[in-house]
Nucleic acid binder design. Structure first.
Lengths: 233, 233
DNA sequence: GTCAATTTAGACACCATTGTCTAAAACGTC
DNA sequence: GACGTTTTAGACAATGGTGTCTAAATTGAC
């Protein structure tokens, strides 16, 4: 009872570095195992082995399996969120070739947000455990696809004001853009492997071409619009 | 050892009806429980209770949990397959309003193939257990989305020859059509609830409008195509 | 009603997992 | 090297699930 680990001391410590390493190692390993096995299929021992840590250490940091799980989800969502914003910032202010710029943007987005380990984790876990943890599901819905959609919507709004796109419903267009990008990728990333750069590139190009055919405004030729579209300019 | 149940006798029987009822009850209950809990989370006892059947009866019909699981998957996939073909047959041969016809078609497709219980089961289970059962995953890929895509591709090809659509890559267009239909629905059907008729209708209309802006050929005005498109005719 | 096929409840051994506990070891700082 | 903090291995009880077995009950065809 003398030298038992007291979680309350964590904030006061001078040994933050070592702890953080263990914590991160645990979170990382847990993310992988949870992703592969699901919540009920993942065992604490398996996670401990993957994290190169004893089982007791996990129980020192997280009261129980469920605590660990929600911590992992929060960690992954935070990272995904930061990644999203850093990617949004890369879209050029002055775009002379909207197709190329949108394609490059879609590649970065799918590579670093949708098809990476974090994206796969969130997709799988929210789908399989979403009904069991409604608050988790809601947080994901708002911070994940919700954030992406509204951020994309803002981007499209900017591009509309510049006369490059012609969109009525920005949110809808954002959802459709994401759906189109995923159209070619979900099969690959479901299979387990991450898509190659060529696959990402081709998926993005296909998506952007179709998107621009639906929402793009041809350079100087406003006459060439399909007549069923009400041209607002 | 006298009156033990012998699976080999099943085919010779005169009591097919009763057995079928039990079998279907088990398959149905198992599908629900597997869908809700995942493979490792679902317990045989839970399935037995849901099927109003004793646990031993399940073990009489299926050697082990895994056997039951694959049987459920095959059952659901067969049903989904039949449903798909019955829906494909509903697309009118002579279509005077392509937008309305495609929309009605998309509603039927999403309602009876994508958002119904079977669709949800397949999506969740393939996603969570696909890596553990590669053969299952492959079967789903070919018989599920693969079938839908190629069937849709064939339909689009017909519509192209009639001059209603203008498509280079039919498979790509099919995948994109499905992705667009799902764009508005995945969030709803992930949440657990099945979408309302209004939601299905609006999702289908949004998808079809965008799809037709990208791939539709305006009635008599072939000049009005965006110049970037190579007109093949 | 008879008979065989089928289902049932319950008990059972077996195993994996969770979460706790303890004493020893390792770590980091001074 | 001393000291408090943290990690570790291993044992542990409790739990819950799988799959087997048995004897009794039910069903359905004749």
């Amino acid at each position: 009872m003398k030298n038992r680990y007291e979680p309350a001391l964590r904030a006061t410590g001078h040994t933050q570095r070592g702890q953080c390493a263990k914590r991160l190692s645990i979170l990382d390993a847990a993310a992988h195992v949870f992703c592969r096995e699901g919540f009920s299929g993942a065992s604490i021992d398996e996670i401990a082995v993957a994290a190169c840590v004893s089982r007791q250490t996990i129980y020192n940091h997280y009261r129980e399996k469920e605590t660990l799980f929600t911590a992992v989800v929060e960690d992954v969502m935070d990272r995904a969120n930061a990644m999203l914003y850093s990617i949004l910032a890369t879209f050029p202010d002055k775009s002379d070739n909207i197709e190329d710029d949108l394609t490059a943007f879609a590649v970065r987005l799918s590579k670093n947000c949708l098809c990476n380990q974090d994206g796969k984790f969130l997709r799988k876990l929210v789908q399989s455990e979403g009904e069991r943890y409604p608050h988790l599901f809601e947080a994901w819905r708002q911070h994940g696809p919700g954030k992406i959609s509204s951020a994309l919507g803002a981007l499209f709004s900017r591009l509309c004001h510049k006369g490059v796109l012609q969109i009525d419903d920005f949110d809808l267009a954002a959802r459709q853009f994401l759906a189109l990008v995923n159209a070619d990728l979900q099969m690959i990333s479901l299979f387990g492997g991450t898509p190659t750069d060529e696959e990402l590139e081709s998926a993005a190009r296909n998506a952007v071409q179709t998107f621009l055919r639906a929402y793009g405004k041809p350079a100087g030729t406003s006459i060439a619009q399909p007549p069923s579209l009400a041209v607002v300019s």
